[in-house]
Amino acid sequence: MGSNSLYGPIDPATDAGYVDPPPRMGFFTDTSVCIGCKACEVACKEWNLVPDDGFNLLGHSYDNTGGLSANSWRHVAFVEQPFAGDALAEAAGTGTQFLGMPLSDLPGKATPGPRGDFRWLMMSNVCKHCTHAGCLDVCPTGALFRTEFGTVVVQQDICNGCGYCVSGCPYGVIDRREGDGRAWKCTLCYDRIGDGLTPACAKACPTESIQFGELDELRERAARRVEDLHEQGVAEARLYGHEEDNGVGGDGAFFLLLDEPEVYGLPPDPVVATRDLPRMWKRAGLAALAMAASAVVAFAGRRG
């Protein structure tokens, strides 16, 4: 285990012991061209034989999936938002402004009245295949493993459903399936990419909102795309999860967003918990010593 194994930029496949692995593969999901068709959600289920997720009208705009779960490995978020376009922002000289904060509300709850422009954000969420994957780190059975492509996959024949990975993931991705008891999430179509195929969701995406490829190349592409968008006046475009020095050492699946991450249900600054694990063990060691010492003190002077 390298000095960076718990935190910081590394090549996860090499770190996991692969000798001369293939390039790290991942996703760049460009939400600025997502049309919310949910083809990715359906294609994923078709290919991976994921069961349906229940038939519940959520009222979260057109999102009736709600979030990623054991039974939804892609999730398309819909955010309805009053929005002051660039003109207003320029006039105010303050960059992008939002008129109102409807986001923790159901749609339409914003105060009625005259409004500026309006926008409808859509974003297809997925497992981030973190460089430092909280889920993988904490898995006690080795069911979760790092593939040669640097992705993170559950081996279903090993998982015993301890549920630790669920709490280990800083993005709330992996989940235990009811009735089945095991943990499930996106495999980055391990069974497809090994054969040189594109993952089902990316293949189905009509607008290339989901781009699959070598992570390095995707990062360059994404940087260019943000630049283009900025030139086109879309000042609010930003990347999320692309930096190698973020809290999880860089996401294997990263995003171009048009608003703050939390608006889409993403954590603004996730950190893999194992970053602090050595410190935690140290504290636990101290506490253990204190406990032992207390016992000794309790019985001290009573030699019989």
Partner: peptide, 21 residues
Amino acid sequence: LPYLSELQPEMFVEVSPQLAA
């Protein structure tokens, strides 16, 4: 088909906040 039905599970009607009021 369950995979499509779950995405829009119920008949609904869209109205503006003003009409709702």
